[in-house]
Structure formats: structure tokens, C-alpha cells
Amino acid sequence: MVTDASGGVSKEAHDMAIQRMIQAGATPITWEQYLLELQRD
């Protein structure tokens, strides 16, 4: 998931949502990392 392109109603809500997604197996990345992954192809 692209963590810096997602929001929440508060910083705490955002951070807790990110933690739940990590526990479910998601890999957090930034939009820059995502862009570089696309460019690699």
C-alpha cells in the first residue's frame, strides 16, 4: 500500500489503519518507491 497517498480522520487513525494492513500482510511503500517500481519496467 502507498502510505503517503492514503489519509484518515486523524494521524492516530491513519497510523492504526497502516498497522492493521501490515498485520494483514501488506507492504508499506511511498509514492516515490511506487513510481520507481513502474519506471523499472
Rank of each mutant, 00 (worst) to 15 (best):
P28E: 15
I29H: 01
M21K: 13
S6G: 04
A13C: 02
W31M: 11
G8P: 00
D15R: 08
D15K: 11
D15N: 10
D4H: 03
Q19W: 03
R40P: 04
A5E: 12
L35C: 10
R40Q: 15
I18K: 11
A24H: 07
L38P: 00
A17L: 06
A5N: 06
I18E: 09
T27E: 15
E37G: 13
D15Q: 14
A17E: 08
L35R: 07
A26T: 13
M16E: 14
I18Y: 00
E12D: 12
T27M: 10
Q23G: 13
K11R: 11
A13L: 04
I29K: 08
E12G: 08
I29Y: 01
E37Q: 14
D15F: 03
G25M: 07
Q19H: 06
Q39P: 03
V2Y: 01
W31V: 14
L36F: 04
R40N: 15
E12P: 00
V2W: 00
T30S: 15
H14L: 05
M16L: 12
M16N: 12
D4A: 01
I18N: 05
G7P: 01
P28Q: 12
L36H: 13
L35F: 07
E37M: 13
P28T: 15
T3S: 11
A24K: 13
W31Q: 08
A26C: 14
Q19S: 13
V9G: 05
S10G: 06
I29D: 10
A26Y: 12
T3M: 03
D41M: 08
L35I: 07
A24I: 03
A24Y: 04
M1D: 01
G8V: 05
L38D: 07
G8T: 06
E12M: 08
S6Q: 13
Y34W: 13
M1F: 10
E37T: 09
Y34P: 00
M16V: 11
E32N: 12
G7C: 02
A26I: 08
W31F: 06
E37W: 03
K11A: 11
D41P: 10
T30Q: 04
T27H: 09
M21Q: 12
T3E: 07
T3G: 05
A13Y: 04
L36K: 14
R20W: 01
Y34H: 11
V9Q: 05
A24V: 02
L35M: 09
M1W: 00
M16A: 14
I22F: 02
S10D: 07
Q39M: 10
E32C: 01
L35Y: 08
A13F: 03
A13M: 03
Q33K: 09
T30L: 05
Q19K: 13
P28H: 09
A13R: 05
T3L: 04
A17D: 06
Q33L: 05
Y34V: 05
T30F: 03
G25Y: 05
G8C: 04
S10E: 02
L35H: 04
S6N: 06
A24E: 12
M1N: 03
I22E: 14
Q23N: 14
Y34K: 06
A24P: 00
S10P: 07
M21C: 14
Q19Y: 02
T30C: 08
A26V: 14
T3V: 15
P28K: 03
E37R: 09
R40A: 15
W31C: 09
W31K: 09
A17Y: 03
A26K: 09
Q33W: 01
L35T: 07
S6E: 10
